[in-house]
Design a protein around this nucleic acid. Structure first.
Lengths: 317, 317
DNA sequence: GCATTGAGGTCAGAAAGTGTCCGCAAGCCA
DNA sequence: TGGCTTGCGGACACTTTCTGACCTCAATGC
């Protein structure tokens, strides 16, 4: 009966929770004889989840890392923590991990009981993007709804405000979410227009799952990201920043993390490069580092630094 | 035999992956008759994981959100994404979620196959804390090793550099990781000294699991966080920043997120408050917002703003 | 050496899981 | 409306597994 499966899951859960259990206690909790427990442990091992055992007084069982990821049995707090972590990662806190994170997030959110979803939503303000982003603020709820639609192959309705023109309702077969530059795009088959379209997620509002499933079409070329890049005739204007700082490379590197690169020029001086569409950000960096610097490019950065410096001096006096 | 359990897990995995499956295909993949598939689905339902079914042409099965979190069956990418997300959250990217995140992270890391751990470690630089932190850079590997020791009730060795004095090897029974202020502390029973001690994680190096288990002692009072707070005679000096800005509250709020509070004073002006031990941070905010401001406190902030302003002007000229 | 704790073989009875066959119900479409 | 598809679930016979009891053996720590 389901008894065995359920018991195996409970056993896995116990082993995941506490890490070390005497056999007698496990047997007691699962309400079986020690012999059966040993058989259950064997079953887990056969499934590829290595369970370590040690004998003697204070012996016990312990789940070890194996070749495959065992089914994760999470309690509420852990599930919420995972969802929150994925959401921040998807929102761009971890460069290069947005897409994977949002896919995993869609999976987790989908499986989460409503009460946990509410808890996560309630934490929206706590996890407000704040300074980090630089990019436009993006509602994680919108993103996950779309991701769920892509995943579940469900038709999607939403309001879309194109760059120039009135907002209008759209009805699409969502295909893929693609992060490009600092923005998210939805690549979808537009049902009204009968063609592939891309939508900037930050211009998209009130996405609603329709429940209607569809058989996914194949996008020309097969790669949504490539299709989108090819379609984007112009990428948003960006500044390539280059500044020489009279300070060792190391603290600079530690400070800016992956937001830019730092190369040593001479001892005690280094060149920092970054690519950004918001000059406020490199100015912040320069100000906080506090070292003397020379701006190589772009000229606009010089102007911006001057303006910021004057603001600060006025306020400080 | 284990067949049934294994098949149930595979079924769960399939249902988690694609979201919608025709019964015949599921039966085919699991290599059982449709009747047995129906029975398996029933079993899942009995376990509390609601499986939706729809009839008619193009009918199928679909896993829905239920009352409990089902066992998460993750593929490699998803597992890595979850670990990365938790790590950033634990590193302080999500205020108030450090502890829960690090606990969940310890669980996940513990279960992850070595090859995935390596992938995650390789991503360390990608997820470099960068600007975010403000606090001292903390090696996530150190944190998770300690968390695993706490979780597994394993004795721990490490090198510790006290504020004043030489680094020395320590041998402890780890009890709990506690985030306090902007720092992490390990509360542990010091085996050499035979007493409870707290250790700042950022002063701790080369933690090593010994594999030796112990029966956890009870900490006086029962609450490690309370114990630690009581023990910390002085908390790190902090500045309470208060600045009036000649700008609407809304953009300020959007910019600083949860790092501080903003109240409207008069139309077109607002007061920003934050508590920090690093004045560089509020200065950055003031500089980037670009609005005229008046510093109410602390006086040190005025000095810092002046210095930063001068640096920027020098560099810009 | 002794107590503790896990490993694992064997056995018999109990309890499942399984496929086949069946009639039924619900959705979709012509 | 009728026909098709797909899921639902009862009944049955058969097979397989599961379980607890009992036993001996093997590590481990004191």
């Amino acid at each position: 009966m389901a008894n065995t499966s359920a018991r195996m899951l409970r056993l896995l859960s116990l082993l995941q929770t506490h890490r070390y259990w005497p056999g007698s206690e496990l047997a007691g909790r699962l309400d079986v004889s020690p012999r059966t427990l040993r058989r259950d442990v064997d079953r887990l091992r056969e499934l590829g989840y290595p369970v370590d055992a040690s004998r003697g007084v204070a012996g016990g069982y312990q789940l070890q890392a194996g070749a495959a990821v065992p089914p994760l049995l999470l309690d509420d707090d852990e599930a919420v923590a995972i969802a929150i972590g994925l959401r921040t990662a998807a929102a761009g806190a971890v460069a290069g991990f947005e897409e994977t994170s949002v896919r995993a997030l869609a999976k987790v959110i989908q499986l989460l009981p409503p009460r946990l979803r509410r808890r996560i939503d309630a934490l929206r303000e706590v996890t407000a993007p704040g300074v980090l982003g630089g990019g436009p603020t993006l509602d994680a709820g919108v993103l996950t709804t779309i991701a769920m639609a892509c995943r579940g192959e469900e038709r999607l309705r939403f309001d879309y405000a194109p760059r120039d023109g009135e907002p209008a309702a759209r009805f699409v077969e969502p295909h893929r979410l693609v992060p490009l530059g600092r923005r998210w795009y939805l690549v979808a088959w537009d049902l009204d227009r009968g063609d592939w379209r891309s939508f900037r997620v930050d211009r998209l509002a009130a996405p609603a799952l329709t429940g209607a499933r569809f058989r996914p079409r194949e996008i020309p070329g097969g790669d949504p990201a490539a299709w989108l890049r090819a379609r984007m005739t112009r990428i948003p204007a960006r500044y390539d920043v280059s500044v020489v700082l009279e300070i060792d490379a190391e603290p600079v590197r530690a400070f800016i993390g992956h937001y830019g690169t730092v190369e040593e020029t001479t001892a005690g001086s280094c060149r920092m490069r970054m690519s950004t569409d918001d000059l406020g950000w490199p100015v912040m960096v320069l100000g906080v580092l506090g070292a003397a610097f020379t701006i190589e490019s772009p000229p606009e950065l010089r102007e911006r630094a001057r303006a910021t410096g004057e603001t600060l001096l006025r306020g400080a006096s």
